[in-house]
Design a protein around this nucleic acid. Structure first.
Length: 578
RNA sequence: GCCAGCGUAGCUCAGCGGUAGAGCAGCGGUUUCGUAAACCGCGGGUCGGGGGUUCGAUUCCCUUCGCUGGCUCCA
């Protein structure tokens, strides 16, 4: 952490203490949870007799301003456990924290009327807190545990200067303006329906067209990348899910079974067991491997109602799934290949900035994991080698691997610098074992293949939501549902407009003529709001010159061009995936 | 699932005990117009669903569904 970051974090942490003092003075009897700084600001958790609403925030903020203006010093003291227990005797959550700390001497901070158990550091005094603002309130379980009491959390943020705070507030407004839930409605892409069920997305014609474009690109890339594309059913017998283990370790994510001829069938939450079925249709030789099988597989998972969020968290979604079956000797090359393939795919959609995480097992608890030490060792080293070979910075996360294998997660960074988890490349040491997958090796004996599970876009729904937010709805030309809107100034320009339309259509462009008896200004405005990349204004001058006037959605006026010239420019932009 | 808030016309929102309103959109006209909203008129809502309190509920209470912000979890 840089000095500057530490300073900011310290200030935010101090601000959270000031907020605690303000809340305690406004709501006597408040019990304090914890109040740390976060990457964006700070929060404090309270157990209050009174349920907080956003209407309480101005009063808290005003009280905080008073405390800041009073410039109260933050005073650090060291106390022993007994003293600490006495000081916080009315604060059960603090007592629990004290009991969990092993140190004999504990630090406390005082400022004004507040005493808090806290490691620090803090500012010298409340007056050093810069510009701050309370943002929202939310429920939060004590220590993140849903079996513990639900506390009330107030989120806020603070910056050294008012200008920085203003920028941050502006950024929040920008995030809101890009919200895919709002844009998906405005651009007529996607809807959800209360009467039809929560967390289930409906793709409208324009959204559907974009999805087709995404899928077509995806399929082409996969065939070029050495994958085969398969299709599997949506439901499978209980027996399958018992074998795969899903009925043991993933039951909470699965929907109740349906009865078909006296047998339980489950709708699939994952595609892997189905791909396995295909693998097992014949004896596989080492000569057949690697097999790379991809599927746009639609799965359904139970997600708790409170976690649903537009397209980013739904109950039914299509994964761009694939399973790679290979020999241990092939694994390094396969990992490198899938890593390159992923990054290339993401770049195709305009994502050039990534955050990579390598999740490995907890070395202390080898018994928690499926697969042998040797397999984990080889898997991990092949992942590391691939990352190193491509010079990718990554964060190693000890103990974050799933029980069945280590993995690489790639988070794409959007235009606002927010990370989104989409791609994941996971080893699976569990399923091949459970389904007794084999191939005949060079030695003529049965061997166990390695299996790698990977999704690049993650789910089409989430990826689409991320695309909307990344581009704020102004998609690259190749993805824009309507690429060109032709705007005749008056009815007498319609014939020529139709001619331009036909010509551009024959070039494969998605073109529409706005033939309504409306004014040009209105048509421009609406095309602009629909984020159409090109607007062609056609009046007397254009008809006479056999040209078109090109306006971009940026507002830029490119002036007059010939139809051929314009068509070529658009085709070039499409080819460059701009 | 849990805590808090919110569900009023297609959208954005006002009204909050006496039976519903605006702007935009839609529809019908008039206007044929040079780079982000022409003008006039009309229709449109069992005020999310169910139950209760009340002479009377969009307004108060309960319940249910959905949404929002979080917690938890993940593609």
């Amino acid at each position: 952490m840089s000095d500057q970051e530490l300073k900011l974090e310290t200030m935010r942490h101090s601000a959270s203490h000031v907020m605690a003092e303000a809340v305690v003075s406004l709501f006597p009897g408040a019990r304090l949870g914890i109040g740390p700084a976060t990457s964006e600001g700070f929060y404090y958790d309270f157990d209050l007799p009174h349920p907080l609403t956003s209407e309480d925030l101005p009063a808290v903020e005003a009280e905080m301003k008073r405390i800041v203006a009073a410039d109260l010093p933050f005073v650090r003291e060291e106390v022993d456990r007994a003293q600490a227990r006495r000081l916080f005797e009315a604060q059960p959550y603090k007592l629990e924290l004290i009991d969990d700390l092993s140190d004999e001497s504990l630090s406390i901070y005082r400022q004004g009327s507040l005493i808090d158990l806290c490691r620090g550091p803090h500012l010298d005094s409340t007056g050093q807190i810069g510009a701050f603002k309370l943002l929202n309130i939310a429920g939060a379980y004590w220590r993140g545990d849903e079996r513990r009491p639900m506390l009330q959390r107030i989120y806020g943020t603070a910056f050294a200067t008012q200008a920085e705070l203003d920028d941050y507030v502006k950024k929040l407004a920008e995030i809101e303006a890009r919200d895919h839930r709002k844009l998906a409605r405005q651009l007529d892409l996607i809807s959800f329906h209360e009467e039809a069920g929560a967390g289930l997305a409906y793709w409208h014609p324009r959204g559907g067209l974009m999805r087709v474009l995404i899928e077509d690109y995806w399929r082409r890339q996969h065939y070029e990348g050495g994958y085969d594309i398969i299709f599997t059913p949506h439901i499978g017998r209980a027996h399958l899910w018992e074998t795969s283990g899903h009925l043991n370790f993933y039951k909470d994510g699965m929907y109740s079974p349906m009865d078909i001829d006296g047998q339980d069938y489950y709708i699939k939450p994952m595609n892997c067991p189905f791909h396995i079925m295909i693998y097992k249709t014949r004896l596989r030789s080492y000569r057949d491997l690697p097999l790379r099988w991809a599927e746009l597989g639609t799965v359904y998972r139970y997600e708790r109602s409170g976690t649903l969020h537009g397209l980013l968290r739904v109950r039914g979604f299509t994964q761009d799934d694939a399973h790679i079956f290979c020999t241990p000797e092939q694994i390094e090359e396969e990992i490198l290949r899938v890593l390159d393939f992923s990054l290339n795919m993401l770049r195709g959609f305009g994502f050039d900035d990534y955050k990579v995480e390598l999740s490995v097992r907890d070395p202390q608890k080898p018994e928690k994991y499926a697969g042998s030490d040797a397999m984990w060792g080889q898997a991990e080293s092949s992942l590391v080698k691939a990352l190193t070979a491509r010079n990718l910075a990554y964060q190693r996360q000890e103990g974050e691997a799933v029980f069945y294998g280590p993995k690489i997660d790639i988070k794409i960074m959007d235009a606002l610098g927010r990370p989104w988890q989409c791609s994941t490349i996971q080893f699976d040491f569990n399923i091949p074992e459970r389904f007794d997958l084999t191939y005949i090796g060079e030695d003529g004996r049965q061997q166990r293949p390695y299996m790698v599970h990977r999704a690049l876009l993650g789910s089409l729904e989430r990826f689409f939501g991320v695309l909307v937010e990344h581009y704020a709805g102004a998609f690259p030309v190749w993805l824009s549902p309507v690429q060109v809107v032709i705007i005749p100034i008056s009815d007498r320009h319609l014939d020529y407009a139709r001619q331009v339309e036909a010509e551009l259509r024959s070039d494969g462009l998605r073109v529409q003529v706005d033939a309504r008896p409306e004014r040009m200004n209105l048509k421009i405005r609406e095309a602009q709001l629909q984020k159409v990349p090109y607007m062609l204004v056609i009046g007397d001058k254009e008809v006479t010159a056999s040209q078109v006037s090109v306006r971009l959605r940026s507002g830029e006026d490119l002036g007059k061009q010939s139809i051929a010239e314009f068509g070529a420019a658009v085709r070039a932009a499409i080819a460059a995936r701009k």
